[in-house]
Write a protein that binds this DNA or RNA. Structure first.
Lengths: 334, 334
DNA sequence: AAGCTAAATGCTAACGTTAACGCAACCGAT
DNA sequence: ATCGGTTGCGTTAACGTTAGCATTTAGCTT
C-alpha cells in the first residue's frame, strides 16, 4: 500500500478511499489508483480492514449438530443454494459450522462474522435464550423457518398452515372425507404446528374428525411405513393420507402398495416439502412445495439488511400445491 | 483486555499468552487469567489476532459455479459432512463460496483464509494455472478428486480405476461377457478416466471388447434413459450395464424396465458412487461406493497439515463394491 | 555470599488498514 | 477583492492483538 502511495505521490488514505470507491476522491485519481493496484496485483488485507472498520464482511451459518440429518436432506441443498446465490452476488462470503453453542456467541463477539443465520428447527429452548441475548445486544440474527414464539430474531419462514390447507382443500375437492394425517415426532415444535393446521383444516373443509386418523410418526420412510401398516391392521377406514413431510409420504405409499392398495386409485397420498425424490417415486407424489430456494435468498438478504442497520419484520412466504400422480378422486372405501 | 490486565495487575502480553496456553506463562497465572476471562466473558478480537499472527484461522471451500449440480448431488452432502466434522473438531471454521475465479486468489492473498479446498471436477484448465501459481507461492491448496495431471496441488481422491474394475470383476464372476459402459460427458476429464479403466478392465477380465458397448451420456437419468433406449433399438446385445455414475444407472434401469426387461433377471445394472437414492430404487442398485465422507475428512486434515507447514503427498482411497439387488447371474442373451 | 542460569513477566513496536479532522485550493457570489 | 462553501486530499491517531527483546525474580552452584 505504501508502495502504491509513493509511486503515485499520494497518501495511503487516498489509496484506501479510492479502492473503496469513495466518491470523495476525484474520479480521475480513483481510476489511476485502481489501475495501478490491479497492475501491481495489490490486495488490501482483510484482517486489517476488519480491525479498523469493525466489519468482517462475513456472514455465519450455523447448522444443527445433527447435521447428518440436515446435509442428507435434499431440501437443505436448495436452501444453501439460495443463501449462497445472494451471498456471492453481494460479495459477502458465508462461513459455516455445524457446531453448537460456542459459535453462536463466539463468532459474533469475536467479530468473525457480522451476522448470523440459523435454522429454526435446530434451535433448542436453551438456544433461544442465547440467541435472544445476542439479538438484544443488537447483533443481526436471522432464523429460517419455524422458530419458537419466544425467539426475538427475525424469522423467514413459509406459511405452513396455509400449506396444509392447500393439501386438504385439494383432497376435499376430490371427494375425500376421511384423511389420515401422518404427523411428525409428537413433541417437536413444527410437528405440533402442522397438526394444529390439520385439525383446523378438517373443520374448514368439512372432513370427518376422528382422532384415530392422526398418527404420530418420526418423519422417516420406515416410520411412516410401520404407522400405515398398523393403521391398516386396525379398523379405521380412510381414502387419503396427508403426511407432514415427503419422506413419510413416500414411506406411506410404499406400505400401501406392499399391502395391495393402489395409489392413487384406492388411496390418495399427499406429502409436504417437495423434495427431489417426490417427483421420482412411482407414482410421482402430489405435495406442498415450500419455496426453499427463495427462503434462502430472503434470509441472506435479511441479514445483510440488518447488518446495514435497517430494521426488518419477519416474513412468511406462500407455499404451493404441486399436483402429481398420487392423488385421485376418492373411492367409496379403503 | 486492558481491563483484564489491570484487574490482575499483569501486562496485556501476559493475558494474550495465557489465553493461548503459552507454556511460558506459569500454570497458576494462566489459570487465574483464564478464569477471570471466562467470568468477564472476554473474547479476543479475531481480526486483531489475524492481523498480528498472520493467520485467519479459516479454511476456504470453493465450489463450482454450477453449484446447482453440486448441491443437488447427495454425494456432496456427505463430503461436506466429512469436511465440517474435522473442521469443527479442530476449531477451524470453513468459509465457502460458489463463485468463480476471484476468490481463488483473493481469499488467500487477502488473508481471509489460511488454506483452500476445492473440487477437482470443477477445476477448469484455466484454474489449473491459477492454482499452480498459488501452490508455488506456498499457499496450502487441497483438491478433492480427479484433478488434472498438471495440477501441483495435493489431491485427495479415490481409486476410480480400481472401482471400475471391482464392478467389472463382479459382473465377470456372474458370467457376464457383454457389458455396456455408460460413460459420462465425452470430454470431461473424469469421464475419460473411468472409460479408460473400463477398457483395461475389459481386457483383464476377458470381457468382449466392442466399441458399440460404450455409449456417451451426460450423467443424468434422462440421458441414460435415452441412451439405453437407442441401444436397445440397435443390434448390439448385452447382459449387463455399468454406468459411471448412479444417476445414469438408475435412468438405465428405468429404461430397461419400461421396455419390458427385468432387472436383474434379464439385465444386470451396476452404478458408481453409491448415492442415497441407490438403495431406495427398485431393485436396489449394486454400485461402487466411494468413501466420500472419508474424502472430506482427509481433505480437511490435509489443509490443516499444510497450514501447519508440513509437507504432504497426494492420496488415493480405496472404493468398495456394494452388492445389492440389481445384479444377478448372466442370462443367455438380452 | 556472589555469580550465573533459567523462568516468568513487562515494554514497545509493529501488523495494515480506516476514520476524523484539518487544510489548501478553487469556485462563484457579493 | 473578499468571503463562505465546496472539493480533494494529507495527517494523525487509532483498531486490538502479538512478537521480540529487555528485565526482573527466583533457584542453583560454587
Amino acid at each position: 500500500m505504501q508502495d502504491l502511495a509513493s509511486r503515485l505521490g499520494v497518501s495511503r488514505s487516498t489509496i484506501s478511499r479510492a479502492l473503496r470507491d469513495d466518491p470523495q476522491i476525484a474520479a480521475l485519481t480513483r481510476q489511476r489508483i485502481q489501475e495501478l493496484a490491479r497492475e501491481l496485483d495489490y490486495r488490501p488485507n482483510a484482517a486489517a480492514q476488519a480491525l479498523t472498520s469493525r466489519r468482517s464482511g462475513v456472514v455465519g451459518l450455523l447448522l444443527p449438530r445433527s447435521s447428518s440429518f440436515v446435509f442428507a436432506n435434499p431440501y437443505f441443498s436448495e436452501l444453501l443454494q439460495g443463501l449462497s446465490d445472494v451471498a456471492e452476488q453481494q460479495g459477502y462470503p458465508l462461513m459455516f459450522s455445524t457446531a453448537l453453542k460456542p459459535p453462536y456467541e463466539a463468532w459474533l463477539r469475536e467479530g468473525r462474522v457480522d451476522g448470523l443465520i440459523t435454522l429454526g428447527s435446530s434451535v433448542s429452548d436453551e438456544d433461544v435464550v442465547l440467541l435472544n441475548q445476542l439479538v438484544n445486544q443488537g447483533y443481526p440474527v436471522v432464523v429460517i423457518h419455524a422458530a419458537p414464539r419466544a425467539l426475538k430474531a427475525v424469522t423467514i419462514g413459509s406459511n405452513e398452515r396455509a400449506g396444509i390447507w392447500q393439501a386438504l382443500s385439494h383432497l376435499a375437492q376430490l371427494g375425500h372425507r376421511r384423511v389420515v394425517f401422518l404427523a411428525g415426532p409428537r413433541h417437536s415444535r413444527y410437528a405440533r404446528k402442522r397438526e394444529h393446521a390439520y385439525w383446523s383444516g378438517v373443520d374448514t373443509f368439512a372432513l370427518e374428525k376422528d382422532e384415530r386418523l392422526r398418527v404420530y410418526g418420526d418423519d422417516t420412510q420406515l416410520g411412516a411405513y410401520q404407522q400405515i401398516q398398523r393403521l391398516l391392521d386396525g379398523e379405521a377406514r380412510f381414502t387419503a393420507v396427508l403426511a407432514d413431510n415427503d419422506l413419510s409420504a413416500i414411506g406411506a405409499m410404499k406400505a400401501l402398495q406392499d399391502l395391495g392398495y393402489r395409489v392413487p386409485e384406492d388411496v390418495s397420498v399427499v406429502g409436504f416439502d417437495d423434495i427431489v425424490l417426490a417427483s421420482v417415486v412411482q407414482p410421482a407424489l402430489t405435495t406442498v412445495q415450500q419455496p426453499v430456494n427463495e427462503l434462502g435468498r430472503r434470509a441472506m438478504s435479511a441479514v445483510l439488511e440488518l447488518i446495514a442497520g435497517r430494521k426488518l419484520e419477519s416474513l412468511r412466504l406462500a407455499t404451493r400445491l404441486v399436483v402429481r400422480q398420487s392423488t385421485a378422486i376418492a373411492k367409496e372405501s379403503a
